[in-house]
Every structure is written in C-alpha cells, then in structure tokens.
C-alpha cells in the first residue's frame, strides 16, 4: 500500500498552458457583452407587467356575459318542460 502511495508522491507538478489568461480574459469580456443591463431588464419587466395588467382589466370589464338560459329558450320558442320527455 505504501509503495502505491509513494508512486502518487512521485507525480510532479506541471506548468499551466500558455495563453490561459488570455482565454479567461476573453471569456470574462464576452460574458460582460452578453449580459443584459439591469436597467433594460427592469424596463422590460415593467412593460410586460403593464401589458399583462391591461389585458386582465379588458378581459374582466368587457367580456360578454353568458346569455341567460330561459332567455335563450324563449328566443328559440322552445318549451322549458316538454311533456314528451317526461
């Protein structure tokens, strides 16, 4: 067992590849460009909420109510209690 662990201690450290810092810097810069600014995110959220609120108000205020059942029967000249079906 100790010889196995001795083998591990023989592993030497290696140098990191060159240009790694450049790659990291590019990734950081690229991410900054892709990020949506908090101001824009806030504006879009407010706009979306306003549109959603307007829609809800319109749906509740201007939606047509269902016709009354007896009105509908009257308009079709039907009998509400037809003896045929009793």
């Amino acid at each position: 067992m100790n010889s196995d662990l001795d083998l591990l201690s023989q592993i030497s450290s290696v140098e990191a590849p060159p240009f790694l810092l450049d790659k990291i810097s590019q990734k950081i810069e690229g991410r900054k460009k892709r990020m949506v600014s908090p101001k824009l995110a806030y504006t879009l959220t407010v706009a979306f909420t306003v549109v959603l609120a307007i829609n809800i108000v319109f749906i509740f205020r201007y939606s047509t109510s269902k016709p009354n059942h007896s009105d509908w029967i009257g308009s079709m000249s039907l009998l509400e209690d037809h003896s045929l079906y009793k």
Binding site: I11, S13, V14, E15, A16, P17, L20, L21, I24
Partner: peptide, 17 residues
C-alpha cells in the same frame, strides 16, 4: 493578473489530479 500568475500552477495541477 497577479492573483492568476501566483495561483494558476496550483489550480491547474489540482484539477489535473
């Protein structure tokens, strides 16, 4: 950059293990 230069070797080697 200085933090990177000081620690990159240890990080890279640790990840390699």
């Amino acid at each position: 950059e200085q933090i990177y230069n000081k620690n990159v070797k240890l990080v890279y080697n640790l990840c390699l293990q």
